[in-house]
Design a protein around this nucleic acid. Structure first.
Lengths: 124, 124
DNA sequence: CTGTATCCTGTAGGATACTG
DNA sequence: CAGTATCCTACAGGATACAG
């Protein structure tokens, strides 16, 4: 089945790409994917590696990503429970654009901070 | 001046790259930048092209981007007022990673929608 | 260990009206 | 035209406690 979209563009409010972008546009999604891009991780590993995330948000983010087919969840029937998370093939295709964004963030910190200081000083 | 960061990584809650990522991680920022990547635009043009954005959010997003040195604001002293927005050189460096993300969103809509349907059906 | 269930708060962000 | 100012609401997201 082929659906017919009025116009494929993030600028178009009706375009589903907006929903996809919305998914990325929360506090944790990008970071979780970034973390999983380095390989399969257990729940507790993710929690440990991602500084500041709450259980609720980690679970919620992972569920959402699972629903979207970006993350797969592997449950091992052992005691105590063990659950592994990894990126799906679809999820893998997100690594490059997302990592570029994270790299950008990591690389351009000083410039942004400088710009902010300049701007704030002007306002006085 | 060179600042010394404990560890440069988006996974680190103390890393300023988190702040930068937070900036992108709202509903409109990515879309506004995407729009400006196609050239200088007036306020009203942006509002017209970006479906669903309110005046408040457009102004707020633009101010924030200006503060971060990503967008520059050019005011022409005419009546009625005319204000042009464009990307700064720093802002230009964001185009590629951001556009890749938008492209991803536009390209992978069907897969994500399919995954969601699959997931939701399983839950019944 | 991997979650769920609640409660609670701040704030993102929409709607509307007004201004130089 | 390019914004402010205000009001209002939904919901993101943290803290805490509990469960299988």
């Amino acid at each position: 089945m082929v659906r017919n979209y009025p116009e494929i563009s993030v600028c178009n409010a009706q375009c589903p790409s907006r929903q996809v972008l919305d998914l990325i546009a929360d506090k944790w999604t990008a970071i979780v994917i970034y973390c999983l891009s380095k390989g399969t991780k257990r729940y507790s590993e993710l929690q440990r590696e991602i500084g500041g995330i709450s259980q609720k948000m980690l679970t919620q983010t992972l569920r959402s990503l699972e629903r979207d087919g970006i993350v797969s969840r592997m449950v091992y029937p052992v005691v105590p429970p063990m659950v592994e998370y990894s990126l799906t093939p679809l999820g893998e295709t997100l690594i490059e654009p997302l990592c570029q964004l994270c790299k950008w963030a990591e690389t351009h910190i000083p410039e942004v901070e400088a710009a902010r200081n300049r701007y704030d000083r002007k306002l006085l």
